[in-house]
Simulated scan of single mutants.
Amino acid sequence: MATVILVRHGRSTANVAGILTGRAAGVDLDAVGRGQAVRTAERLAVVPLVAVVSSPLARCRQTARVIAAHQGETVRTQLEAGIVECDYGQWQGRPLRELAQEPLWSVVQTRPSEAVFPGGESLTAMQARAVAAIRRHDAAAQTEHGPGAVWVAVTHGDIVKSVLADALGMGLDLFQRITVNPGSVSIVRYGTERPEVVATNTDSGDLSWLRAAGPVGDAPVGGGAGPAPAAPNPAHS
């Protein structure tokens, strides 16, 4: 299958304020978040992307636009409702320090598969629709562009964590063990037999090897040799 690069949006004004933003309107990247979006876009500029797919919320669209701009005229941003932020219902817009006192907080932390936000959705439903959307776009990218296709999904922290948990086969109740920082890059490649989680929560490092990544095959016993080193850049020699 193709390769999906999961990008969490850059830091937002609500992240700094400690507010559970949810799907509230008017939440933008702050100065740090804009810098994170540029850093991520520069990392991805060495990889010809076949698509940039974004959550409809502003902080994701802003991050996705920067990534697409670094690809030139070859790619445009597509919006996908399936990877929008969790519907936190009555929790939306409230300070995290207050929410931490709610009985549901412990369920979210230790048994997230049982968590249903009052007036919102369950984390199980969030994961199901997010994984379905990612796999659908991934299959479409491969069908149109071949198994070497690389595409980006710009979305939210809990969405990325739930997709990674699914790919790792670890179950939603363990997804809080995964850290996904603003502006970070995680990479999943879906194979015929199983997914392959290539990277999680990275904010630096060369990604040019993705241009020549082969199909997901048998797992190399002992770990294998890894991707070939990037060729030297004459401009820096």
Score class of each variant (00 low, 15 high):
60 C>Y: 00
118 P>G: 03
171 G>E: 02
160 V>A: 09
131 V>E: 06
191 G>F: 02
1 M>A: 11
137 H>M: 14
92 Q>I: 11
188 V>M: 03
133 A>N: 08
161 K>P: 01
45 A>F: 12
220 P>H: 07
74 T>S: 05
119 G>D: 00
120 G>K: 15
124 T>L: 10
39 R>S: 08
201 N>S: 09
188 V>H: 01
166 D>L: 09
61 R>P: 02
222 G>W: 07
77 T>N: 06
106 S>N: 12
12 S>A: 05
151 W>G: 00
42 E>L: 10
195 P>G: 05
51 A>Y: 05
15 N>I: 06
109 Q>T: 04
17 A>D: 13
45 A>T: 15
162 S>W: 03
171 G>H: 03
64 A>G: 03
233 N>F: 13
144 E>I: 11
30 D>Y: 01
160 V>Q: 04
44 L>N: 00
89 G>V: 11
188 V>A: 03
70 H>Q: 14
121 E>R: 09
60 C>S: 06
218 D>F: 14
210 L>E: 02
176 Q>V: 09
172 L>E: 04
122 S>T: 11
149 A>W: 13
87 D>S: 08
91 W>E: 00
108 V>Y: 12
19 I>W: 13
141 A>Y: 07
192 T>K: 11
72 G>P: 03
60 C>P: 00
202 T>M: 15
231 A>W: 10
62 Q>A: 11
158 D>N: 11
237 S>T: 13
179 T>N: 10
188 V>F: 03
184 S>C: 12
214 G>Q: 10
53 V>T: 09
87 D>W: 02
70 H>C: 12
216 V>N: 03
69 A>H: 14
169 G>M: 15
21 T>K: 11
59 R>P: 02
117 F>H: 00
142 Q>N: 06
70 H>V: 06
135 R>C: 07
134 I>S: 14
131 V>S: 14
162 S>I: 05
176 Q>H: 08
183 G>D: 04
53 V>H: 07
150 V>H: 01
156 H>N: 14
118 P>M: 04
32 V>H: 14
216 V>D: 01
215 P>W: 02
92 Q>M: 14
29 L>Q: 02
231 A>G: 07
167 A>D: 04
30 D>A: 03
47 V>S: 01
216 V>Q: 04
132 A>M: 06
164 L>G: 01
76 R>E: 08
118 P>L: 05
164 L>D: 00
197 V>I: 10
87 D>G: 04
2 A>K: 04
85 E>T: 05
104 L>W: 03
230 A>D: 10
104 L>R: 14
151 W>L: 02
209 W>A: 10
76 R>N: 12
202 T>R: 15
84 V>P: 00
142 Q>M: 08
19 I>H: 07
133 A>L: 15
140 A>Q: 09
126 M>Y: 01
208 S>N: 09
148 G>E: 06
26 G>R: 12
105 W>T: 08
211 R>I: 15
174 L>R: 13
96 L>C: 10
142 Q>A: 15
210 L>Y: 03
173 D>E: 11
179 T>H: 15
103 P>E: 12
224 G>F: 09
199 A>Q: 07
7 V>S: 02
128 A>K: 05
42 E>G: 14
27 V>H: 12
182 P>M: 06
233 N>E: 13
47 V>T: 02
123 L>W: 00
148 G>R: 13
93 G>E: 12
10 G>F: 15
227 P>Y: 06
217 G>W: 03
93 G>L: 06
124 T>S: 11
